[in-house]
Design a binder for these strands. Sequence first.
DNA 1: GTGGCGTCC
DNA 2: CAGAGGGACGCCACT
Length: 721
Amino acid sequence: MGDSVDNIPGVPKVGPKTAAKWLQQYGSLDNIIARADEVKGKIGENLRACLDQLPLSRKLTTISCDIPLDISLADLKKRPMDNSAMRELLQELGFSAWLNMLDNEDSSAGETRQQPEQLPRNYEMLLEQERFDVWRERLQQAELFAFDTETTSLDYSQAEIVGISFAVEAGSAAYVPLAHDYPDVPEQLNRDDILRQLRPLLEDPGKAKLGQNLKYDANVLANYDIELRGIAHDTMLESYVYNSVATKHNMDDMAKKYLHLETIHYEDVAGKGAKQISFREVPLEQAAPYAAEDADITLRLHQVLWPKLQENERLRQLYLDFEVPLVPVLSRVERNGVLLDVGMLAQQSRELARQIKDIEQHAHEIAGQSFNLGSPKQIQAILYDQLSLPVLKKTPGGQPSTAESVLQELALDYPLPKLILEYRGMSKLKSTYTDKLPRQVNKKTGRVHTSYHQAVTATGRLSSSDPNLQNIPVRTEEGRRIRKAFVAPPGCRLLAADYSQIELRIMAHLSDDQGLLKAFSEGRDIHSATAAEVFQVAEEQVTQDLRRSAKAINFGLIYGMSAFGLARQLGLTRSQAQSYIDLYFARYPGVKNYMDNIRETARQQGYVETLFGRRLYLPEIKSRNAARRQYAERTAINAPMQGTAADIIKRAMIAADAWLQKDQPDGKMIMQVHDELVFEFAESDLESCRASIGRIMSSAADLKVPLVVDIGVGKNWDEAH
DNA sequence: GTGGCGTCC
DNA sequence: CAGAGGGACGCCACT
């Protein structure tokens, strides 16, 4: 720790999340300082000391919050904290993400500090068949009803249903406890019996259902052989499509933002941490209000969000044609799961363990002492303090970096960095993949079942977790061995289909650049074509090196990279890199034009859109802080391309699923990796399926360039590429 | 809980 | 004049 302003000794660390929480709680930095002593000991004092010693307009990083503060504390105190000034200030401080300023109701001001309303509620607990019959009839008659399952686990494959709640109109909801279990628990309706009675309703596609993250409920119901149909609305997706970044899309946060209601949290009834109990053990008198409220709030959220979506035709279409239909598709993909060769992974773990041990021994000999190769801190001490290697780069925290690029450079001159790199690679493979994946195989199905998240990314992509199947290694030979453990069952083959250069094709489409469009239309290798244009040689004369440079330029552009970044990547001087970029823009003026336009569009309307109208709000595009503004500008450039690609593959998934259901019921869609879909087909069907999948994916969008799909088949995922 | 690092597209 | 590549998830060390 140094003694500069950004590292004041004795000031306890305050992470961005804590800082954000305080800001939300207390309204301004000023109030935090006034109140912080009460809540956090001496932090308030230290905060004040920290801020008071700042010169006017001094740019600094406050504590470790990474808050660039362009104004002094005196300035801050002078400001009247009305709603708009507060919003502006928060944005300056870099807390726009928590500002709730993205909502279109923004202009209606004055509601951020609104008191929670009293929630009118008429909640009923159903313990007798007669009352359940009344409610079932209500559901039967309702145009739309909300429901929610309470279960024993967040993991759908482990989850048992404990109860179900319903709502048909705001303020009125019912909870049906079915499997609560604790001493002296009241007698409840029989679960199997009730599910049997509900089944026709839940499976009827004509009966419209509403829920919060219905994919989860669909998966849980599937454990009871109930195929949920008639998914009409999902509040999580409504919120996501309406504004992907204004709030997290869980019910508690959404209720706060859109209903100004404080809800009963899961932790309130089940406790948290080690003391958390299963919902099964939650007493009925607590469970019923919680569960009924879930259904009620879902309905109320829908009543607020659905009209908002209907105001914008493109958002409405995106929601109805992409996101909602994707829910049952993802549910099936997850439940299909992927077969793993666990024996193969176990063998790899053993080999890695042996190699890791050898490297450790060797490294300790070189260092002359024992240390933890997995600790960046210890490595830092050994490399820079003890062995006095040159410091090439520092982390944002001011410490000498031990990141891969740095070690690679050092590895040219010293032996230890190379060993550290090898160690990192191997321990990563072992801990994250070969050790972990086999433990995530479901005992009942013998396969791994990931969860896809539909409302996480800012751009519209899916994400995957538990396990994350979207970051399985592919780059190195050792890494690819893990893909060989993703296998097809006997008699089947995996079919992997990926969109070729989809983001660059989208860039061609969006920018309408004639050169780029022509290159794609002629089916040329885009990186070679770019190299030929930029370096002004015939395409046959493009060397691997030139192609590599062109590829870096192409991808760099998609991400909004600067000359500095390109120079670093290609090992050029900055001016060389700049001249490449200039040449590129000279050759592809449409691209240059597009990038300038999209920045301007973002500034003017405050958001950017994908081809299908998905929006990403970028409030920081107008930030006076250059770093934040430029970050927003890069996002403005990247999001339409990344997001359009996400839209297209979602549409392809919906179409592929429909085709599977109709024509190939034995075939399975088993994975999505952003621009790739993986299927499992019987060997005998392989060739016809290959043609069908190719057709379905290529026609998922009609761009000015062809959507080329590369398809491979094999007994394992690696082979299928 | 946070930061650093590493895996993917 | 600093900072200079988009989007994710997971593991580990450390506090």
